[in-house]
Write a protein that binds this DNA or RNA. Sequence first.
DNA 1: TTGTGTGAATCCCTTCACAGCG
DNA 2: CGCTGTGAAGGGATTCACACAA
Lengths: 211, 211
Amino acid sequence: MTRRIPASTIRRLSHYLRSLEDLGREGGETVSSEELANRGQTTAAQVRKDLSHFGSFGKRGLGYRIDELRERLRQILGVDRVWKVALVGAGRIGSALFEYPAFESRGYECVAIVDSDPQKIGARWGELTVQGPDEIERLVAELGVELVILAVPAQAAQDIATRVVRAGVKGILNFAPIRLKVPPTVPVEDVNLVMQLEALSFAITQHGSGA
Amino acid sequence: MTRRIPASTIRRLSHYLRSLEDLGREGGETVSSEELANRGQTTAAQVRKDLSHFGSFGKRGLGYRIDELRERLRQILGVDRVWKVALVGAGRIGSALFEYPAFESRGYECVAIVDSDPQKIGARWGELTVQGPDEIERLVAELGVELVILAVPAQAAQDIATRVVRAGVKGILNFAPIRLKVPPTVPVEDVNLVMQLEALSFAITQHGSGA
DNA sequence: TTGTGTGAATCCCTTCACAGCG
DNA sequence: CGCTGTGAAGGGATTCACACAA
């Protein structure tokens, strides 16, 4: 049904959904593409074009009904349901994510925590107990884990990735600074803070010397 | 000197620099654009085009000298020096970043930590002491802070951003889920994990229904 | 009149192809 | 030869502009 959608469009859709929330207006009211555009860094035409890829659910002369648009965006992004997530790596990054409130409120439920450090195995994190790495396959299968957040050191990441994919995981949010080799059917999102810092230092350096 | 460089190019340059490191070869040897391409998700032509924006420092018939290319990439990205960073927000994310080893090894030096929680103020983190938010302007000025990592709750983020920019900060790595309003001369990089999770759930959802 | 939906035009990034240098 | 550097061609995403519906 949907054509090939570029990643930039998805990022914007995610942004529109966020914008709807802090709009401070009732669900029955409407928003215009113009308004949505002002909240992201984009244009009204871009908003309409983005949405038009998925059907036409705006009202001419009025705009988009907020609750309708929200529901539609949730469907498109696939967040109109709960995703079961396993956290692999119970270090600093792992614990930061575990406590991250936006996480659960957006429909991502952490159902398992795994770490290889014997000191951590058995520890209670809220309702969960940290499990050893041997348990991964069983946990994925028994709990129906669909997403894995991979927050382990680089040298351990590929092995874990291979194993969880084989166990049936459908997507990976990867914090390890390596390019994971997984089948093309399993999407991987890389979180790369060094890259983002370098984008900053580049922008600053260019700005100074360029102008 | 340099033209308008798209963000995608910068991301790739950052990647090339990383690839040079885990190439496991001496600095005096050479790499071809082909090899570099195989390590990123790109093509040989793309590598050459990316590099050509900044001059021609490859040798025809041979490739690029590794140490020369590394030095050049560092210059381009602005990481051929140490950047002084202040960490604002000493919560989970903050502590994760503080401990992140890649951080310091890439030339980003954390020179100050700030938090508004009275329980945290005064705590020792390595060589540093957590400071109160009133100190921000003074710290930025006295320590010559150039980058700020903003890891505070959304409602506090804009205020901090405005203040550190006024105090002379040149760039911000923003973990708060809002779009910061800052002058166009101050680049902001947003770290948005929810967006990345949504990109995953979109990809998985589409994959299942589309094919 | 207002604001959507959408072909057409534009712009920009990527890829191609090859001249040219080592 | 081998591999870079780069104009030219190609493809995709953004922007424009306007018909049309409420």
